[in-house]
Amino acid sequence: MSQRNDLAEYLLRLGDSALVTGQRLCEWCGRAPALEEELALMNVGLDLIGQARGWYDYAAELLDDGRNADALAFKREERDFRNLLIVEQPNGDYAITTLKLFFYDAWHLPTLEQLSESSDERIAGVAGKALKEARYHFKRSSEWVIRLGDGTDESHRRISDAVDRLWRYTIEMVNIDPLEQELAKTGLAADPAFVAEQWQARVAKVFEEATLKLPEPAVPFYLNGRQGLHTEHLGQLLAEMQFLPRAYPDATW
């Protein structure tokens, strides 16, 4: 029973991070720096929200409390959301958006690599499909970090500022969460130590090519997305996203 709950909790973390990233990408609609980027951003968003649905469907089955995937997405409060802090940060300029995606992708990819071999077939299935998408996401966001880092003086300055602003949130990509560590031991979840190592290596490599200075490792601080301790930005995002299902609680759309 407890493992069942732990697993549901883990799935919500995966789903929430994917959904919130997708929601932030929706905000770019009609505002991207080039038309080609509109398509690219929307593609990533479609992949991620599709993945979120996959995780929520399974979480809903495990929770078995009458809620479905939509209820999990649209009817939970911000304290119940389990996404990484990095993904809820406002889009800012394209440097911030790019870097947010990159930090997330560099965590997401090794996570899915492991999950695609999960001892749980259902998880392995969702992750297997998501892995192909995440490989492309990572490639794309890495290239953009390199372009902006090693582009013009202005782009270098902007993405350096973005690193400065966002770096503290990367603690969540490298810390070892006890619940995930436990689940990983049984082969259900991704091993946080492996993910952390991969994340650091990938980020270091791309930063070098992007001529960006790699900061000292981030340190833990008060907030913790996995525990539902979010920045104030998440509540605003959810208020907008959840507006209709909350205004009309019993409605079908």
């Binding site: 720096p33 394209y94 902006l148 090693d150």
Partner: peptide
């Protein structure tokens, strides 16, 4: 705004 705000991005890509 989308195109103006994106100018530095497109320039960066070209420069790179």
């Amino acid at each position: 705004n989308a195109i103006e705000d994106g100018q530095w991005v497109r320039e960066a890509a070209t420069a790179h």
